[in-house]
């Protein structure tokens, strides 16, 4: 009987030697002990497909399709006919000034713009909009500053167009920012520009003490 215990102990030592401990790094895919229905015959986003020639389950869009939005309810504006809201242009095709009237320019909108700006724009354009983002020291040296007269005087619609389609070394950001996001970002950019131009006389009298003025 003693031998049996010895063999068992040996097996335990062997298992630990081979199996190691929890958290061990491995490049091999995890073993699924009870695979059951873990992997089903269905397509998930960005997954592969053996059916389509390009090997992708996600299908490229056919020419001319428009997104229906994220709501199930029918969206009356789904054709994106509004030139101002979706392209930043006036009816005559020029870049529009100011913001589309259907957007409420309130604090919530501005905060949303700040959040999106910080995620997508600040890495290159910098938190202050001066083109001194973190990527500058890594080789992105041509980033524009919003405080140049050229951009301060640029119609909002033209900035919208730049975000949508990119310009020079800047790639398009239409896949990351929805049209509403883009307008919110532009509102925040305008706020950054205004802040840079600020003077002591802009500070309300009851807040001067807070800033030590």
């Amino acid at each position: 009987m003693r031998t049996v215990y010895y063999v068992t102990a040996l097996l335990v030592v062997l298992t630990i030697s081979i199996g190691g401990f929890r958290g061990r790094r491995s490049t091999q895919p995890p073993i699924e002990v009870f695979p059951d229905m873990n992997r089903q015959a269905k397509y998930k986003p960005q997954a592969g497909s053996k059916f389509f020639a390009d090997g992708r389950a996600d299908r490229p869009l056919a020419a001319g399709v428009v997104p229906r939005g994220r709501t199930i309810a029918p969206d009356p504006d789904f054709l994106r006919a509004d030139n101002f809201l979706y392209r930043g242009q006036t009816t005559s095709g020029e870049f529009a000034r100011d913001f589309p009237p259907e957007l409420a320019l309130d604090e919530k909108f501005m905060q949303h713009g700040q959040e999106r700006y910080t995620i997508y724009c600040a890495p290159c354009h910098g938190a202050l909009g001066d083109g001194q983002g973190i990527t500058k020291s890594y080789g992105m040296v041509t980033t524009a500053s919003y405080h140049d007269d050229r951009i301060r005087k640029m119609p909002e619609g033209e900035i919208f167009n730049t975000i949508t389609n990119g310009k020079n070394t800047m790639s398009p950001y239409a896949d990351k920012l929805s049209p509403e996001d883009r307008w919110a970002v532009i509102a925040y950019v305008r706020a950054l520009e205004r802040a840079r131009q600020g003077a002591v006389s802009d500070v309300p009298a009851d807040h001067k003490a807070d800033l030590g003025l």
């Binding site: 199996g19 958290g23 490049t27 091999q28 995890p30």
Partner: peptide
């Protein structure tokens, strides 16, 4: 999973 999945770092 604490043993099977934790530590998985594919190339």
């Amino acid at each position: 999973p604490k043993y099977l999945r934790v530590g998985y770092a594919p190339v």
